[in-house]
């Protein structure tokens, strides 16, 4: 079947403290979710360098530092600060009832059929 991108519930807002991250598995991918003073951010959990757990990193206003070797990524663009690596970024929102919802791109919809609660939005990312 062809997959389309969709908003998928990934957890509860109250489970992510301010300026910390928590990880969640979506389809084939682990994604790190962060609560920032300005809102929410979501990026790939694995650091492209050596696979360090980015949700465990120290978070500043707009970036996270990998706990293994201190690579730093901008949480809005996914770009490595002071380097050429990048991590994927995802759209994330908090629903009125406190559910965190992630816009899962089509490529990651493998294995998430049972998660998609709302009808697919649009035709792609």
């Amino acid at each position: 079947m062809a997959f389309r991108s969709a908003w998928v519930p990934v957890g509860r807002a109250e489970d992510v403290p301010l300026l910390e991250g928590r990880s969640v598995t979506v389809g084939p991918q682990r994604i790190a979710v962060f609560r920032l003073p300005s809102g929410w951010a979501a990026i790939d959990h694995a650091c492209p360098h050596r696979g360090g757990p980015l949700a465990d990193g120290i978070v500043a206003d707009r970036c996270v530092t990998c706990p293994l070797h201190n690579r730093r990524y901008d949480l809005r663009t996914g770009m490595q600060v002071g380097g050429d690596d990048r991590v994927a970024t995802y759209e994330i929102r908090e629903a009125a009832d406190g559910t965190l919802e992630l816009l899962v791109p089509a490529a990651l919809m493998v294995g998430t059929e049972d998660l998609a609660q709302s009808a697919p939005l649009g035709s792609g990312v």
Binding site: P17, E20, R50, G51, P67
Partner: peptide, 19 residues
């Protein structure tokens, strides 16, 4: 404030190369 602490001090254990 735990957000100011390195992961080791958030979970009171030493992170290893495989997480």
């Amino acid at each position: 404030e735990r957000h100011a602490r390195f992961i080791n001090d958030r979970v009171h254990a030493n992170i290893q190369n495989d997480g």
